[in-house]
Computed example of a mutant assay.
Amino acid sequence: MEDRRVVGEVRRGDDAEAFDELRPLLFTIAYEMLGSAADAEDVLQDSYLRWRETDPETVENTRGYLTQIVTRQSLNRLRSLRRRREDYMGAWLPEPIRMEHDASHDVLLAESVSMAMLLVLETLGPTERAVFVLSEVFGHSLVEVAGMIGKSDTTVRQIAHRAREHVRARRKRFQPDSDTSRAVISQFVRAADTGDVQTLMDVLAPDVVQISDGGGKVHAALRPISGAAQVANFLIRLARTSMADMRAEFGIFNALPAVLLRSADGRLDSVLMVELTNDRITTLYAVRNPDKLHSTDTVRTLRRDGDHR
């Protein structure tokens, strides 16, 4: 006999299937709202439980309804996260997510999950962030967004204008991963490993910045390091001491080429994401906080679209 659940007097057997079809989209929304894969997964779990309690006959558009649930759950979670991040030790970086190698074909999606954009979104208030993400990245009308977050159309238009201006003033140029950028990064890794200062200086932009996130749990620079000479010296000292026996691997994280550093016993020590402009390294994002490295082997499927039901 077919196994079907009953909610009230409504029989339903495809609630899990509908949710799973939209999971990549819903995860992407939650992650862009929170900057944390672990918290995004928690939001999806809570949202699924709410979805199971919903009478499906009252839902005209599954995608819109689930987007609303995930958005509101993310807003609640973000407000509590922001209070914790105020007390974070050292620089805070988003939790890195491993992406498929062909994910950068959607340039808007790739840019929206890049480290630079997530750090800009972090400077928005929770509601501003929700309005910007839903309208600018996922293409919802401001009328739809107003319904999703429970505010008037006029208020949402004002919030959207402020958020767009804020992001535009801070947005950095985004350069998708390419074969050339990977060649530059290979040269960079060899130079850091061998202590070749001149080659490092050749691949680093003059105003390069290194940001390290240790979360107070492992050694990391508490403040960003700026300038090619300063960054080069820091990397060489690091390579000679704590990184001396590390093995380097390559991957794609947050639509950026990345170097993964593992100890001799295979433990992941760091994910170093590399941002380039015109084939020069402009920013290095080093995530070392072990709490942010648990799911780095999981390849995330991200989407900006979903089934309309």
Rank of each mutant, 00 (worst) to 15 (best):
A30M: 00
G195D: 04
T301P: 00
A163W: 05
R182V: 05
D196M: 09
H308G: 06
G306W: 07
Q73N: 12
E2Y: 13
F19V: 01
V107H: 07
A264L: 11
L256R: 11
R23M: 11
A183V: 07
D207W: 04
R190G: 08
R170L: 14
R84M: 08
E21R: 07
T154F: 12
E41T: 08
G215N: 09
D177N: 10
V137Y: 03
V208A: 15
M243E: 00
L302F: 03
E144Y: 00
A130P: 00
R63W: 14
A205K: 07
R12C: 09
R168Q: 12
R82G: 00
V120K: 01
V120F: 08
A16L: 12
E275G: 04
G13N: 04
G125C: 00
L256K: 05
N61D: 15
A160R: 03
T241M: 08
P257S: 12
G216M: 02
F138S: 02
E17P: 02
T282I: 05
D291C: 02
V259I: 15
D196W: 14
L200T: 03
H105D: 05
N278I: 05
R5N: 08
V231K: 04
A205W: 02
L124S: 12
A16D: 11
P257Y: 15
V10W: 12
L142M: 02
M117V: 02
L142R: 12
E122L: 06
V107G: 10
I29D: 03
E122F: 13
G8S: 09
L109H: 11
S242Y: 09
P257L: 15
G64D: 15
Q210T: 10
S263A: 05
R247A: 07
E111G: 01
R170S: 14
G125V: 02
S80P: 06
V231H: 00
N278V: 14
L268H: 02
D196E: 15
L204F: 06
R50N: 08
A160K: 06
A258G: 04
R79H: 14
G216R: 10
F19D: 01
F234S: 13
P176W: 15
R83Q: 08
S178K: 09
T127L: 13
I252E: 05
A163N: 03
F174H: 11
D196H: 07
A229C: 12
T127P: 09
G125Y: 09
Y31T: 00
L142I: 03
R79G: 08
I236V: 13
V107K: 11
R83I: 02
E95F: 06
P224G: 00
